[in-house]
Computed example of a mutant assay.
Amino acid sequence: MLPTLTRGRRIAAAASSLTLAATLLGGATAPVFAHGEATPVSSHSQAEMLQPDPTSPTAYEFGETLATLEGEELEITFLAEISPHHRAAIEMSQLELERGVSPDIRTHAENIIANQEHQIDQFTRWLEEWYGLTPEEAMAQAPAEAQEEMKILEEETQMMIEELSAVEAGEDFDVAFVQKMIPHHQSGIIEFLEPQSRAVHPQLRVAATAGITTQQAQVADFRTWLAGRG
């Protein structure tokens, strides 16, 4: 049982994390994440089609969990999750380069691949240098609650990739990619919040800040592009 003061501080940290996440994501709250079969893009009305997909509530829950962790446990848990999260963004971006036609969105996809491959290499190296762990070993050491949330996030991400893979090449693919990359980036921003402010290693705090800045800028560009499609 945590001492009352420590537990209170952790609860306050979780609340602060979610408040900051809502601010960074434009005041968004966690909507219900739609499970089940994907609806083809062509069947949406124009107004619906131009909205991004919702951000997973599990991403907010994982952010709450990170806010209760400290020191080594915080860093290991974050580093266990961020690499597969980035790999999914890279996979979606590679699909955009194969099927998308918008020069602007394709350029964003190229940048996502370059930036997130760099961070994966960086984070994997730090895990080994600091803790002697691979990302898989780090995940096995994460708290049980975090492991369950990471499992759900992985399942939801795979569903997102499968839905995107079912979209044919052309302008519709650009739209579908943007609709899915916005919430994916928003999840990443939530994950970066705690290490940005409380990571033990200063280089991880710097990397988390860079991750937030880059993904915020891309989300803003994606939203502007999507709005221009109306």
Rank of each mutant, 00 (worst) to 15 (best):
T214K: 08
L18W: 12
A146G: 10
Q218D: 11
T224L: 13
E149M: 11
H35P: 00
M160L: 15
A207M: 13
E70T: 15
S102Q: 06
T77E: 06
Q46T: 15
L5V: 15
S165E: 15
M150K: 06
E117A: 12
E163C: 00
T209M: 10
A144F: 02
I112H: 00
E154L: 13
Q203H: 07
L50N: 12
L79F: 05
G132Y: 05
M1Y: 09
A12V: 08
L2G: 01
E156I: 10
T4S: 09
V101A: 14
V32N: 12
T224P: 06
G26K: 11
V178G: 03
A142Y: 06
A207V: 09
E98Q: 14
A140T: 09
F173M: 04
E129I: 01
E70R: 14
R87P: 02
E61A: 14
S187E: 14
M181H: 04
S165P: 08
G100W: 01
M139Q: 15
N115K: 08
R10E: 15
G26V: 10
T29S: 13
E156V: 08
E171C: 00
S16W: 14
R125Y: 00
A166S: 15
L95F: 07
T65M: 09
Q215S: 09
S93I: 03
T77R: 03
L25S: 01
A227F: 10
L20P: 03
L153S: 02
P202C: 05
H35K: 10
M49Y: 01
S93R: 01
R87L: 05
Q216W: 00
L24M: 12
T6V: 15
D172A: 14
L133C: 04
Q196Y: 08
E37Y: 11
P40A: 08
G71A: 11
P31Y: 10
Q116W: 05
T157C: 10
Y131R: 05
